[in-house]
Simulated assay, not measured.
Amino acid sequence: MSDAVDDDLYQRTLALLEPGDIELVGAIVHTDLGGQEDLEMHELTVELNDVIAEHAGKGETYIYAGNDNTDFASNQFHGLTLDGDEFVWECQQLLRSGTFDLVFYYEAIADQDAIVAAIEETDHVDRVTPVP
């Protein structure tokens, strides 16, 4: 990564993917949405939920905000299946250098190349950094 801020975010995202119960990959979605565009950022998160769920083959999903769970941080969300509340993805919404970056991670069984390509075609996305 050429930018120190991006390199730091990439390294922190990579650390989140370290081996656990399931193998994960991720994507850092750099947007053109400023700090006052919360609604648009949430709408983008909903749109990316559909993209990731489609390419993960998990079926229909919903977004869980964790408002009733003290283990959740502000601006942290999960995509879960309607059938069984199975994990599909997790996301943190970060305001960095005046614009939002969305950090998603999801099971490595998902089609990473297709997810990145679809995200790159989405409105308000400047670029996507895949994370192995």
Score class of each variant (00 low, 15 high):
D7H: 09
F87A: 07
D71W: 05
T13G: 12
E40A: 14
N67G: 15
L80Q: 09
L9Y: 02
D123G: 08
I52Q: 03
V5T: 15
Q93T: 13
N49P: 00
G66M: 09
D32W: 01
D111T: 03
I63R: 14
Y10A: 03
A15D: 14
G34I: 03
I119P: 00
A110P: 02
A114S: 14
L33R: 03
D32G: 13
T61Y: 06
Y105G: 00
G79C: 05
L95Y: 04
L48V: 14
V125C: 07
I109K: 09
V128N: 03
A15Q: 12
V29P: 01
D38R: 08
A118I: 04
E47R: 13
T122W: 06
E120V: 00
M1G: 15
L48W: 04
E86H: 11
G26E: 04
E120G: 04
P130I: 08
I28W: 02
L39A: 14
P130F: 10
I28R: 06
E23L: 07
T61M: 06
V25Q: 15
K58E: 11
E47Q: 12
L14C: 01
L80D: 01
L82Y: 03
S74P: 07
G34V: 08
V46S: 08
A27M: 07
H124G: 01
V88F: 04
I115L: 08
L44W: 01
A114G: 04
D3K: 12
E60L: 13
E43C: 04
V25W: 00
L24P: 01
A108P: 02
Q112G: 05
D8H: 11
D6F: 06
E107H: 14
D85Q: 13
Q92D: 10
E120N: 13
F87G: 02
L94V: 07
I63N: 07
Y64L: 12
D85Y: 08
T99P: 00
W89Y: 15
Y64S: 09
W89A: 07
I28H: 01
E54G: 05
G35N: 05
R96W: 02
N69Q: 13
L39H: 08
Y105M: 06
G57E: 08
Q76P: 00
V25N: 06
V125L: 08
E43P: 00
G35R: 09
A53D: 05
Q92N: 14
V128C: 07
Q92A: 11
Y64I: 03
G34D: 14
H30D: 13
D8F: 12
F104Q: 02
S2N: 15
L33I: 06
E47P: 00
M41T: 15
A15Y: 07
H55D: 06
A27I: 02
F77A: 07
S74F: 11
G79I: 00
L33P: 02
V131S: 03
A56W: 01
D7A: 15
Q93Y: 03
D7K: 12
Y105D: 06
H78Y: 14
T61C: 13
A108D: 14
V125A: 08
D68R: 13
V5Y: 09
L80K: 14
T45E: 12
A56F: 04
